[in-house]
Each structure stands twice: as structure tokens, then as C-alpha cells.
Design a protein around this nucleic acid. Structure first.
Lengths: 202, 202
DNA sequence: GATCGAAGTGGAGGAGCCTCCGCTTGATGC
DNA sequence: GCATCAAGCGGAGGCTCCTCCACTTCGATC
């Protein structure tokens, strides 16, 4: 499980690839041929693919920094806003994070979908960020306590990705407001999410 | 605006392509080479692309029938279930519709995203179906009256697509329950969706 | 500083995507 | 029937993706 450290040359190449990827992705958009990235980094395409087996893996690694910032701002938000408002503000940032990377669509969907695989780290961070927000909201009785942060992540990312396709910020804002409503404490007697679904699935 | 009718041979080819597409898509999965579809239909790849400029267009056309069935069942559902429950049941069907076509991911996202373009017909039908359900729910005071069916369609499709990636039906059901909660009438004094967003976007 | 196995490299090659444009054919008017 | 030509056809070609494996390089060991 503890992968031995990369050889020096490999580490160097990996680093170079990442630097080039960040630059090229933001310059030429999300559809740059990976061959171009490899060429620019002065390595063969094979090398790129060994370090980053899929385009998604490369994108994920390239934007690790931004994702970190996104997750790290949770504490700040909670320090300055009431929990529900903090969550709502965080949703906006999450939307921006996804939207600026739109076109890398499959990459991002894979990130959220990852069933315990290469993007585990990223997903884990996001889930943790959401968990913190939800917990604060629960403690303040502003949000439900019976939602799974991972569920929220999936729903939220789906909504954001779909909204990003529409290129309509107003709609995006409305959808996030709407989704936030789902996270408010249920009125007494109202059907609950989580125990035996109302649906006909299954 | 009134496109003149296709020439007889073109109509024939188009039809053949659709029949083959339905068969091949369900047989070999959503990633079949379009060249295979063309070959099987006995036409050149150029012909396929003229009739269906993108893979999405082909998929959409191929599943028009299923989509019709999905939209047509609304009345039945409303006849046998209370509006909110009918909506919930419809969500399940919508999920199935999208899920069986997963892997055609971009195709389906394009369908919902379509800003007045080739999939207009499909989107229109879905929006209408949702509008009917929402109106019934509003009339029965089971659902909000202040939601735009188009917003619901975008959010719903996003959630379904994301959930489908996870391959977890239980989660999908939970997410749909959760989303339904967002559509319940807001408690008095609760922030409303639709007017000036709480968010920082914009 | 020579040896050697493991780690890493790179690019050729097979496959699919989509465009483009010279060729074919159905519809229409005579 | 025949001429005409827009509508339609098809597949070669340029491009990207991703795999695969013979070759190179690192660095541990003596």
C-alpha cells in the first residue's frame, strides 16, 4: 500500500507535466490534446499516460490547489456567517470551481463518482468540508441532521454541472437556493428523507 | 423555417439508421463506434453524420419513443396517486430513463442543456410533463407554486446523472426524496427560492 | 567505478471521431 | 423519355486517443 517513492527523473517529469498542464489547460481550454501537454513538457505521450492514466487524473492533479482552497475556506465562512448562509456561500464557490472547469465534464463527474478510487483524496476533502458545514447547521438547528454529506455532495455536484451547462448564473443561483431548501429541517410530520424511500425504485 | 421534405432515398436512409441505432445501442452499449452503425445500416459515415450531426442527436432520436412514454405516463400517475407521490414516482422513471442510457452521458446532458436547439422538442416535452405534475401539486397544496419547471428539470437531471454514475440505487432514491423535500411548500417565514438569491454569485 | 535489475521512457500503431468535397441520384419541368 | 441540378452520398484523410513493449536510465550494491 505504501508506494515506494518515485525515482528522481520520474518525479521531475511528473512535476513538469503538472506545471505545463496548469498553464496549457487555462490557456487553451479543456480540450487541449494531451499530446500537446506531453510535447511541451518534453516527455513522450506514454510518460504522460503513465503518470496520469486518464485526462481526469491530470485535471484533478492540476487543480488540487484550487480544490484545497475551496475546502479550506469552510472555517472562514463559518466564522463570519450563520451556518446555513455559510453553506450557501460555499455552494457558490463550489459552483465556480466546477464551472471554470466545465468542458472537463467527464473529469469532474468521475471525481465525484469515484467509488473509492483514484480521486478518493479529492472526494474525501469535499465530503469533509460539507460535513463540517452540515454539522454546524445541525447544531444551530438551521439544517437537517439526517443527511449524509456524501449524498449532498453527489446532488450538489450534479446540480452544479447541469446548471453550468446552461451558462445561466441566475438559474444556477436559483437551483442552489432550491437545493438549500431541501436541507432545512423538515416540518413536523413531513415525510423524511433517508428511511424507506417513497419512490418505486428497488 | 419549414424544411422541405427529405428526398425519398434520404428518408429511407434516415429510417434505417435509426432502426440500426436502437438495436446496436442496446446490444453493444453506448460506446459503439458510429462507423459500425453506419456500416450496419449500409450507408457511409458521412451520411450518418449529415442526418445526425452528433452522437447525441442520434441517441436522442433513437430513444424518442421511450421519452414519449415517459412523458405520457404523467396523466396515469396523477390519476392514481396524490400529486407529490406522482411526482416522486415520475422521478424514478426519469432516473431509469437516464440511467439506462448512462454512458451516453454527454448526449443526455446536451439534451437538458440545449439552449433552444436541436433537442428542443425533447426538452420541451420533459418540461411540460414536469409542469403538469407541479401544477397538480400546487393546486393540492402539496408542492410549491413558485418553482419553474425548467429549473426543476435541470436540477433533477443533474441529480439523476450524478447518482447514476454512482451505481447506487439506494442513494439515488435518497437523493430524489431529498430533492422532493425542496419542492414542498416553504414553512412560513422561510427564505424563498427565486427572489434575490442568498448566494454570493453575481 | 562497474554491474545489474527494477523503474521509467517514448513513440509507433491501431482505432474512432468528424469534416470535406467530388461524385451520384432523385425530383422536377419540358 | 430526357435534361438539369439541387439534394444527397460516401469514404479518404487529418486528428486525437490510448496501449504496448523494446529500449534507456537510475541507483543500490559490491
Amino acid at each position: 500500500m505504501t508506494a515506494r517513492p518515485l525515482r528522481a527523473d520520474a518525479r521531475r517529469n511528473r512535476q513538469r507535466l503538472l506545471e505545463v498542464a496548469v498553464r496549457v489547460l487555462s490557456q487553451d481550454g479543456p480540450d487541449v490534446p494531451l499530446e500537446a501537454v506531453a510535447r511541451e513538457a518534453g516527455v513522450g505521450i506514454g510518460t504522460l499516460y503513465r503518470h496520469f492514466p486518464t485526462r481526469e487524473a491530470l485535471v484533478d492533479a492540476a487543480y488540487q490547489g484550487e480544490l484545497d482552497r475551496l475546502c479550506d475556506c469552510v472555517d472562514d465562512l463559518l466564522a463570519t456567517l450563520a451556518p446555513a448562509a455559510a453553506l450557501r456561500a460555499w455552494m457558490d464557490r463550489f459552483f465556480d470551481y466546477l464551472a471554470t472547469k466545465r468542458g472537463m465534464g467527464p473529469a469532474l463527474r468521475a471525481l465525484v463518482a469515484s467509488g473509492g478510487n483514484p480521486f478518493e483524496r479529492s472526494r474525501q476533502r469535499l465530503t469533509t468540508a460539507l460535513a463540517t458545514l452540515l454539522r454546524a447547521g445541525g447544531a444551530a438547528a438551521e439544517l437537517r441532521v439526517d443527511v449524509d454529506p456524501d449524498d449532498v455532495l453527489v446532488a450538489l455536484s450534479g446540480i452544479c454541472l447541469a446548471a453550468a451547462d446552461r451558462q445561466d448564473r441566475d438559474q444556477a443561483a436559483r437551483l442552489l437556493d432550491l437545493f438549500l431548501a431541501a436541507l432545512r429541517p423538515a416540518a413536523a410530520g413531513e415525510p423524511r428523507y433517508g428511511r424507506r424511500s417513497q419512490g418505486t425504485i428497488g
